[in-house]
Amino acid sequence: MNTQRAQEIAASPIMENVTFEGTPIYIQHVDGNTGMARIYPLNQPENEQTVPVGNLIEH
């Protein structure tokens, strides 16, 4: 996924189907300067992590 699309998804009120390493995730924030996204698995909101936007897959 590219940074611009990840930012659009993060800003949208509509829940998109996005995964990280096969796990459905929610994108909290995208840093356009670093290309990193703050995410968490839908079933584990306490498990926040920062990952490269390029590793996110939109289905």
Rank of each mutant, 00 (worst) to 15 (best):
M1I: 03
N2I: 03
T3W: 04
T3G: 01
Q4I: 09
Q4A: 13
Q4S: 09
A6Y: 02
Q7C: 10
Q7S: 14
E8P: 02
E8Y: 09
I9W: 01
I9L: 12
A10C: 11
A11W: 01
S12I: 09
S12L: 07
S12T: 06
S12G: 12
S12V: 09
P13H: 04
P13D: 12
I14F: 09
I14P: 02
I14K: 13
M15Y: 00
M15V: 13
M15T: 13
M15F: 00
N17S: 13
N17H: 10
V18A: 07
V18N: 06
T19K: 04
E21Y: 03
E21N: 14
E21V: 07
E21F: 00
G22L: 11
G22D: 12
T23K: 13
T23R: 11
T23A: 10
T23D: 13
T23I: 14
T23G: 01
P24M: 06
P24T: 08
I25R: 02
Y26D: 09
Y26P: 01
Y26K: 14
I27S: 03
Q28E: 15
Q28D: 15
H29P: 03
H29Y: 14
V30D: 11
V30H: 09
V30M: 10
V30I: 06
V30L: 09
D31M: 10
N33M: 11
N33V: 07
N33P: 00
T34Q: 11
G35L: 11
M36F: 15
A37F: 07
R38Q: 15
R38I: 08
R38F: 07
R38M: 13
I39E: 04
I39K: 04
I39G: 06
I39A: 09
Y40C: 03
Y40E: 01
Y40W: 12
P41K: 06
P41D: 13
L42Y: 01
L42V: 14
L42R: 15
N43T: 14
N43I: 08
N43A: 13
Q44R: 10
E46C: 02
N47L: 10
N47I: 00
N47W: 06
E48C: 10
Q49R: 15
Q49K: 15
T50Q: 11
V51E: 05
V53M: 05
V53H: 05
V53L: 05
V53E: 03
G54F: 05
G54P: 00
N55V: 01
N55H: 02
L56C: 03
L56R: 02
I57F: 02
I57N: 02
E58Q: 13
E58R: 06
H59I: 00
